[in-house]
Design a protein around this nucleic acid. Structure first.
Length: 575
DNA sequence: GCCGTTTTCGGCCCGACTGTTTTCAGTCG
């Protein structure tokens, strides 16, 4: 079993224990273990072999034994015993919004409901309302939630989808005269790669006006709840948007609280507690005595009150940032303004939508100093890939574009060359030698067994002409899992051969992902943040890559795009 | 089930909203 499968099984165990009515803290241990394991970039099997499973925070003796059992046997006896007691299909019911363990258990115990369809039928036939604490309204809500679940799934969307929506709504609310402050909070602010709910905070002299406007937004397909300080609308795509209208004198604690993550908040509260303070969304108050509560108008003030340096939202995941803050070793994270290049983009020569010059001019307007044009190579026929002859014609076109754009900007010539299914490359060394920068990538046969696909990529890394591996796992978030590659081996080889690995900034990819970046940097891999733009507009994807790099604790010195053209040349010469 | 500068026991965050109650349980974040 791999990390993801182990994480999922622990999360299922947590739900089953919850339905069974087990101790809440035991349940949370399993749930947190699942969440933590999703964040671990190293393979659990490696940690197991090294006897280091319990070095993962939240994994103690018992859970380490269970992980070992799953790794060695591919099964978890504890889970198998649980599903004898409670049918596995019941877990589907927990995915219905508004249903938790208590009601799911009630439906099972009293009506024998074990499936989503069974629940829908019972609701349609008015059988749920006969149960204690249930009524017609609850029944209708459940039907609606089932419909939404069947239509939209769990409703997680890409950051690239959620962020523009959040910014649009925020901009509209800011136009209301009563609004004095407005911010995005939650996972959008932390720039998580996928988003469950959009969280917005507003300070206003009249909450009612804001709520009216919010619930009446054209985007709102449905108003899920409406209170004096909190409302929630649901959009056509199934995404929920929560709005809280709150006072501004304690904006710092509010923004901090609603930005999360929950795990980070828990750590902050523990720190507060050790100082004899209680931290909630409203203030920091003394646990005993009658000192007046501390109001924080800024987040900086919250961290200062806890004797911590400010922790930026992209780090707030309880992945060691609290410890680093306490010890004064928070990283100086890479910023958008550090970027001087984009090393991966396409033009009309292959499957891009704009000319070399259009891409270059947009990149220059975005503040870059140089770019590399990297159209596809010929075996990716679907993308109109270039053969050696067209590649040489393109070299001429790039020379011409350089003349037009003038001396303040450089257009380099490169390729995004296929690593074919058999591991061979699309161009021979003598063709690659003519290029300024060579990317190699896999786009096909991503389902190959681990050893085979890993060896394909390792082969490319070992080729002295290959400067970078693009989107190393090939994942498309929510659509396609990445290839089963041995990233540890790839990171080690990338260091040995001075091969750059890409953090692809396209919001569908974000590959390497944040946890991979973190691990790669520990090993000493050089990372590039590139847009892989197929259109000038997509050159603005860089900020998604920056956010992901920050979530991977990257500083400017880790990111090769911070180098001057001359520095990059020197590096490439040294390979 | 985890964890420890209150360390091997006893904590483990807590407030808003809804629907069903007649004072609160369930769910969510």
């Amino acid at each position: 079993m791999n990390n993801r499968e182990i994480a999922e099984l622990f999360e299922k165990v947590a739900y089953l224990l919850e339905i069974r009515g087990d101790n809440i803290h035991r349940i949370l241990s399993y749930r947190r273990a699942g969440e933590t394991i999703r964040d671990v970039s190293q393979d659990l099997s490696e940690l197991h072999e090294a006897g280091q499973l319990t070095s993962i925070s939240g994994i103690g003796k018992t859970l380490a034994e269970k992980i070992a059992e799953m790794l060695e046997t591919g099964r978890l006896e504890f889970y198998e015993r649980l599903v004898v007691e409670i049918p596995e299909s019941i877990l589907d019911l927990m995915r219905v919004e508004g249903l938790g363990a208590k009601r799911v258990k009630l439906f099972y115990d009293k009506l024998g409901i074990t499936t989503l369809d069974g629940l829908q039928e019972a609701a349609e036939n008015g059988r749920l309302r006969e149960l204690p604490k249930m009524g017609a309204k609850s029944e209708a809500k459940i039907l609606k939630a089932i419909e939404s679940l069947k239509k939209h799934g769990d409703g997680r969307v890409l950051l690239g989808t959620a962020l523009p929506i959040a910014e649009t709504i925020l901009a509209e609310l800011r136009q209301l005269p009563v609004v004095t402050r407005a911010d995005i909070a939650g996972s959008v602010r932390r720039r998580k790669e996928t988003i469950g709910d959009i969280d917005l905070l507003v300070a206003a002299s009249d909450a009612e006006v804001v709520m009216d406007h919010f619930c009446g937004l054209e985007l709102a397909a449905d108003v899920a709840l409406r209170g004096p300080t909190k409302s929630r609308i649901v959009l056509d795509n199934g995404v929920g948007v929560d709005l809280r209208v709150l006072p501004s004198e304690n904006w710092g604690t509010l923004l901090s609280y609603f930005t999360g993550s929950q795990a980070h908040n828990v750590r902050l509260r523990e720190l507060a507690k050790k100082k004899g303070l209680s931290l909630n969304e409203y203030d920091l108050s003394a646990v005993s005595g009658n000192a007046p509560p501390i109001l924080c108008e800024t987040e900086e003030a919250v961290y200062t009150a806890l004797d911590l340096p400010y922790v930026v939202p992209t780090l707030r995941e309880d992945r060691g940032e609290i410890e680093a803050a306490l010890e004064g070793r928070l990283p100086q994270l890479v910023q958008l303004t550090d970027m001087r290049s984009d090393l991966h983009m396409h033009t009309t020569w292959s499957d891009g939508k704009a000319s070399i010059l259009e891409m270059a001019q947009t990149a220059q307007a975005n503040g870059l100093q140089y770019i590399v044009i990297t159209d596809h190579s010929y075996s990716l026929g679907i993308a109109n890939g270039l053969d050696a002859s067209r590649l040489r014609q393109q070299a001429e076109a790039i020379r011409e574009a350089n003349e037009v754009i003038g001396p303040d900007f450089e257009i380099w010539h490169g390729t995004e060359m296929e690593i074919r299914a058999d591991g061979t490359l699309d161009f021979p060394d003598e063709v690659l030698a003519e290029l300024d920068f060579v990317i190699a990538a896999v786009h096909t046969a991503l389902k190959q067994p681990r050893e085979k696909i890993t060896e394909r990529i390792l082969g490319a890394i070992r080729n002295p002409h290959v400067d970078m591996i693009a989107h190393p796992t090939g994942r498309l978030i929510g659509r396609r899992d990445g290839a089963d590659v041995d990233l540890e081996a790839i990171f080690a080889a990338a260091v040995d051969h001075k091969t750059i690995l890409e953090l692809n900034a396209n919001p569908h990819r974000l590959d390497l992902q944040d946890t991979h970046v973190r691990r790669a940097l520990e090993i000493g891999v050089r990372i590039a943040i590139n847009t892989d733009a197929h259109h000038p507009d997509q050159l603005s994807f860089t900020h998604f890559g920056i956010a992901t790099a920050q979530r991977g604790w990257a500083t400017a010195s880790h990111i090769v795009n911070s180098w001057l053209p001359s520095e990059m040349r020197t590096f490439l010469m040294s390979k």
